[in-house]
Write a protein that binds this DNA or RNA. Structure first.
Lengths: 225, 225, 225, 225
DNA sequence: GATGAATGAGTATTCATTCAT
DNA sequence: GATGAATGAATACTCATTCAT
């Protein structure tokens, strides 16, 4: 468990020289610079997925990107900064992937089923990175917020849907739409966690079917006449 | 060169490893020793709750227990070892707290409600430590298993309950009891996480009510006639 | 329990080991780097001569070289590694110094006398370091082999010489050249040890004369007619 | 090479309580006490032979003797103190073993041969401990002296012998008896080292024969007419 | 006398970050 | 902009020795 030994934190009170800081703030000036920054970001994602945050060294990222360690600091303030950038990209990809696309299914049951499949697909694609973000989120509020943002996006859409369905008389009006969506969102999220990160062996179709059943029954969701 | 010419035969000085190990394995021999070990365990729990695993230094634990660092190693192999002990105690407390006790409620609705309240109470009492264990579990399989054990205890009890209720005709026989309990367990668990660890502000009674509603509706749980 | 229920899949955060290793293995890339490495090696030799291996701290070596402790690890894996480098250099210097150079003396007696003086001079120049290497060699086979290499070089050369002299009829053919050279090598070696390391007070010329006498008589070494 | 990491030295300026010190100075008061001390000494010898000085822990010695660590300090001041006692015993055993015993052989050649065999036998019996004493002697003058004492005993006897033989006309009068015995003593000593400690594979009889030959020829040792 | 327990000084090594070319 | 090198803070663990029962 030596890995868990924390490396020396950044010396406190020793700011960067004005030069490099300025360059970083200004952002890349050339196309080549932009490309370098993107390469570093990509390399960082791969390294974080592979090694987690604590065991990822700046040297690893630089090597993965094929540049020197010094060059890393031309583009990013710190290891945390590049991790934030990686996590932000993850958030955006997740939110995008959770949006409904394609034609709306005919039945509400199918709508729920599709939303479920979208979530699972999105989760599965990013499972490794989700673990790492979660791990760091425990102790870094800023990262925790990125993680929550994905949840919010999903929960808020669900809550809106429930409200609409209540107005249409498809869903039990006795439920608080917000609380219900929070609770059901937790269910889907945590189930994926156990399944895709923890490696508990579920049959995919059976699991999806159970999730969808629980969801629709919990809402007393009716097909419109 | 005299000795340049005199390498060792079978290298002398390659002896057995640590010997404090022996004493540690043997365990305390006196009452005083047992008391010290318990004090250290308690101190460690407080320190881990306060500072997390990585930021907790062995020196902090020793100081919190009012002993020297050397004494720490009289009773525990390492920081990781005492953490395992703390996490094991947590697991046992949690499993105990989740067991039903007191008279069985008259209605199934009340049974579910009580189970929910038990879970929330148990979670709340240990929320700080749960975070820390979770964080370390990401990278330490042994700790991960301790976490899993609590989940399994809860899910298995739930699954048994559902099976019984199905036999009594109280619950929709079309549900897989195991999958349903996994999914509902995830729901309760993750909801507590968002609420008690991430600090999302829920009204307790409203939340409990929603959880209970979703649970009973998902199962089509009927009061027995 | 939320996370108590979420053990990691394939534990995240178990990455590859040290990465400074890479730089160290690659060796210095610039002239400045090469110079630094040489300075450290020199500083280490001085510190080891002064303090021995156990009492030499990495901090001492870094300070002697005028660099930070971190810089030490830019060039060497460990205290042991730099010691191996120092001992290897010692071996090479010794082997070089023991080689005959200059014109071959006219008489065999003078040849033996010169070999003896070469050995003593080489030993005296490195006496301090020889002690330290010997001490560590007791428990470190790799170091022991470095010591052996010097002995072998000397003994092998002696054995060859004896064989040649036997062929020329200068030396008693009844002696085993290899055993004789081992035994005589031990004699010269251990005598220097007692004299130059243990501090026994011998008169140099008398000692050299005795060594040479014993050597030539033992071999029944004759001047060629 | 972690074994080479030096343990914490004894705290400076913290003397023992007067009580224990007094008891130690007084020596054992009872037969049982004397037996305990002897057991500890024996246990220490075994442990030092097995593990060397640095890797031998006081706890190991106490355990080998079947007493508690505290009891160790009832009889010995320190780890070094008991090592000195062990080394002193070794010295006495060696000196005793080197003394000629039994009838004096008829020929001087046989005399030399027997002395050689005595030395080898004595050395072989104590080879392990000799290594450890040598190792510590590098840095501890008091131990070095114990080691030298054995050498002196052997060398002095040899020198006396040479002087006698010179008076009898058996040995070349041109040799300095003292220097010659030093040099020849080094030869025998170092040869045993290489053979019995370093593990170099010599044929015993061939080696003894070579040693004896070199010895007698070096002295021009004649059989008396 | 015997015991179990308590003490605490001492040190190698990593890695994020800065800086001189 | 890019590079290689320099920096230095931070921390777990052992074991000889003492001491209260």
């Amino acid at each position: 468990m030596a890995d868990l030994m924390r490396p020396a934190p950044a010396p406190v009170g020793v700011g960067p020289g004005p030069d490099q800081q300025l360059r970083r703030d200004a952002g890349p000036q050339t196309d080549r610079g932009h490309a370098r920054k993107a390469e570093l970001l990509d390399a960082a994602r791969r390294v974080f997925e592979r090694q987690g945050f604590l065991d990822a060294r700046v040297a690893d990222i630089a090597e993965e990107a094929g540049v020197s360690q010094g060059t890393f600091y031309t583009y990013f303030d710190s290891k945390e900064a590049i991790f934030r950038a990686v996590a932000t990209e993850l958030r955006d990809r997740m939110i995008e992937a959770l949006k409904p696309h394609g034609p709306r299914p005919a039945t509400v049951h199918e709508q729920v089923d599709q939303a479920m499949r979208r979530f699972v697909a999105a989760y599965r694609a990013e499972a490794r990175l989700i673990v790492v973000v979660a791990q760091l989120g425990q102790s870094t509020p800023e990262i925790a917020e990125l993680r929550l943002a994905v949840r919010e996006a999903f929960v808020a859409r669900t809550a809106r849907g429930i409200r609409v369905q209540q107005a249409q008389g498809l869903v039990d009006p006795g439920l608080d739409p917000w609380l219900a969506s929070e609770v059901l969102g937790s269910m889907v999220d945590a189930t994926c966690w156990v399944w895709l990160n923890l490696g508990k062996d579920f049959d995919e179709e059976a699991l999806l079917s159970t999730l969808t059943q629980v969801w629709t029954r919990a809402l007393h969701l009716q097909e419109p006449r």
